[in-house]
Each structure stands twice: as C-alpha cells, then as structure tokens.
C-alpha cells in the first residue's frame, strides 16, 4: 500500500493506505479522530467538513493520497488546549446544536465563512454560505445566530491580538 504523510492539527502523520481511503476514513479510522462525521454519500451534508491548507473541504470527497504534504485541521484541533475557539463558544452560547452530529462540520464551515467573508456577517450571507451543511435538528435559526456571534467574537479576538502586537 502506498504511504501518505500530512500534518493533522499541527502533528505530522504518516501511514500506508489503500488508495481508495478517503480523507474522512483516514482521519476516523487511521488517526481515530472521530469528531469528523459522515452523514451522506453524495457530498452534500457537510458533516465531514475539515480545513485543508486553510480552506474548507468535504473530507468524504478527497482521497487521503491526494493530500500528501497538506496541512489538515479538524474539529479536534480547533480549541487551543482548554480554551475553546470563539466559534465553538458561540455555538454553545447560542444553542447552535442539538444532537451534535452535524456540529463539527458546521463549526469548521463557520470558521471558513469568517475567514472568507469577514467578521460582520448578515443573516442572508450566513444562510447562503451554509449551502453545503445540513442540520436536521435546529432549523438553522440558532446556527445562524451562533455564526454571526462567533464571527464577531473572532473579530474582537483578532483585534486584541493585533493590539497586543502593536
């Protein structure tokens, strides 16, 4: 079996894999990072969203072997030790989750939205950017609220960091 090496949540990993191993299988089965979920087979539900080289992708629709040398970030790597990422906090504060199954993909997608669209997100933007993430529990209302709040919090956090740097 061919080998693949990549960095996952800051840690280098190497493994021999069957070429048909999808990234999500590599994460869940090889690395036992089971926070990334599988909810469909047609690349639509978004439960498997992770970041590859800083951009959100569906880890069920890419082969592990394609990611030689890539930097992969999953939900497990989002918090800084015990300190939650502002988007994680926002999901809890705004009751943006119920069963929790879509949540990792939702949060990774949300962070990506902020990375691309900034910290001041209106409802319309958030709803259309969630095109690729299905939730069956929340009716999206509180997810939208959570992402708006998380985006603001990420902005103020960045401002603080910047201030400290000045």
């Amino acid at each position: 079996m061919p080998a693949v090496s990549m960095t996952v949540n800051g840690k280098p990993v190497t493994a021999d894999v069957d070429p048909r191993t999808l990234l999500v299988q590599f994460l869940r089965e090889e690395l036992r990072l089971t926070g990334t979920h599988v909810g469909c087979d047609t690349s639509q539900c978004g439960a498997c969203v992770v970041h590859v080289n800083g951009r959100a992708i569906k880890s069920c629709t890419v082969f592990a072997l394609q990611l030689e040398g890539a930097k992969v970030a999953t939900i497990e790597g989002l918090a800084n030790g015990d300190q939650l990422h502002p988007m994680q906090e926002a999901f809890r504060d705004n009751h943006g989750l119920q069963c929790g199954f879509c949540t990792p993909g939702m949060i990774m997608a949300a962070v990506d939205i902020v990375n691309r669209k900034g910290h001041d997100l209106d409802e319309h933007t958030i709803r259309s950017e969630l095109e690729g993430n299905l939730c069956r529990c929340t009716g999206y209302h509180n997810i939208v609220k959570a992402i708006a709040a998380g985006a603001r919090a990420m902005g103020s956090g960045a401002a603080v960091t910047q201030k400290a740097a000045e």
């Binding site: 690349s43 639509q44 978004g46 969203v49 951009r55 959100a56 992708i57 569906k58 629709t61 890419v62 997608a109 990506d112 939205i113 691309r116 950017e129 095109e131 690729g132 993430n133």
Partner: peptide, 9 residues
C-alpha cells in the same frame, strides 16, 4: 456551483 466546500475542490 455546488457549495463553498465543493467550490474549493
């Protein structure tokens, strides 16, 4: 096209 994640690939 598709959704943001699909558009990244």
């Amino acid at each position: 096209i598709g959704d943001p994640h699909v558009r990244n690939m």
